[in-house]
Design a protein around this nucleic acid. Sequence first.
DNA 1: ACATTGACCTGGGAGC
DNA 2: TGCTCCCAGGTCAATG
Length: 271
Amino acid sequence: MPELPEVETVLRGILPYAEKQKILNIIVRNRNMRWTIPHSLEEEAIGTTILAITRRSKYLLFATSSGTIMMHLGMSGVLSVVDSNTALKKHDHVDIVLANGKILRLNDPRRFGSVLWSKGDILQHRLLVDLAPEPLSDDFNATYLIDKLSNRKTCIKVALMNSKIVVGVGNIYASESLFKSKISPQRLANSLSATEITVLVTEIKKVLKKSIEAGGTTLKDFAQADGKPGYFAQELSVYGRKGLPCIVCNNDINHITIANRATYFCATCQI
DNA sequence: ACATTGACCTGGGAGC
DNA sequence: TGCTCCCAGGTCAATG
């Protein structure tokens, strides 16, 4: 479920409860995730204090005095702040028990997410070291993207979802930002003009920021840390709107598959 | 180096 | 009620 706005929403939701808290216990009920949860997580993180929580791409990073807890929510992960008496549900795989009585509880039916423990410079971790710039940072700008796309012979939508070009843009926001930019998702990345790429950079930033403000997109089961849904779904322009009228020109929204992912666009507005 | 595809999982909805 | 099939917000390893 989570793309950048959803992970950012979770981060903001847990911050007031989890930052500066000592980790009293970590309970792992199922290690069999996208990457096996290492025993070092409990062995080394219990007893430490969470100094800061940040996000890099779709990873949540809990910095402690002796290492970093890295968490990815995969496709179906939900991280909530719950009280200690909250009943366990199916797929509640990990609890991080905090000194203030709250628990960070990870529920992930599909288990595409994971929780890892890493010492040393976290940004040099093998999963993070080769990641492209954050889309909301100044490093992600027209000059950068023009250069990155200049030799790319793949669809622009695939390029936007490539974490070596830009991180955080997943299937929903790729469709949304291309619609706002009036660029067809099927265009070859290296066929975009400098002007088009400049618009695209602006629209990606706009869409992500607006979604963060709305608490992310809940299509099915995404939830904020307090259990409430995100409200950006009602602001989606094309995603999931197959056959419905384009909000700009009223023609039917198209639904195609690109690289095995559902893709929505308006064939009239997007060229 | 880049592009494409399969694999990892469970659950929900459509269709029969 | 129940079966089968298809789909889902991610991303890495293997293959071309």
